[in-house]
Amino acid sequence: MVQPRNLIVVGENSQVQIIERHQSLTDHPVFTNSVTEVFAEKRAIVDYYKIQNDRDSASLIDNTFVEQKEESYCFLHTFSFGGKLTRNNLNFYQKGERSESTLKGITIIEGKQHVDHNTLVHHTSPNCESHQDYKGIFADNSVGVFNGRVMVDKEAQKINAFQSNNNILMDDKATINSKPQLEIFADDVKCSHGCTIGQLDEESLFYLRSRGIPLKEARALLMYAFANNVMESVKIPEIKKRITHQIALKLGVNLGYDL
């Protein structure tokens, strides 16, 4: 059992990029209980990447708390591709005007894996924004959870808060439980949430197949495309390349990434 604890203070006008990854080296069961606190001071920019691609014997419970002051920007990407049980508890507290939070995630799991995304964005100040975009592809008996909460206090007027969760279930026994949630006490805000659960579009599959792309690859290509638009906001080219490569590998699709 591992219990790492991180405290990250990002001072005024400063910028940081963080990549977090937990990797067990053997197949012994490992349980990681991780706590991270991030304090983003005025005009700080935080760009945080969590790569969760551990062995099937490893479980991870991640608790991350982010507090944001005026005009700070925080981006957090979570890539969940492996592990027995992964639970992400992300809590964002916006405590200053014109701050922005972006939470994105790609989950691609199979077998009996379980990935849980529990997010909270608490808007306490006016003129702020938050964006959440989580995509999931679930095969075999895997289980996914998205429980996203956005709270807007009475004082937090002129907020833009968006939340979206799209999922593809590959097999009959794969499960996704999705619960987008908005609690709004202000009266002048723009908030939206949406969730979709589906299979791949037959028309799109036929289109690809009519161009000679075999069914298996056509499916893989569509899944790749579905997940890949989350990648647009990834700012570190090496991470982008690596994750794109991992997605392609996981879906069994062979693409030229650099074209």
Partner: peptide
């Protein structure tokens, strides 16, 4: 196609590449 299908996330080039190589 009479109504070509929109496929977000796959560029024309990558699509053609996949098709030609298939």
């Amino acid at each position: 196609f009479q109504y070509p299908i929109e496929i977000p996330g796959v560029s024309v080039t990558n699509f053609m590449k996949a098709s030609i190589n298939a």
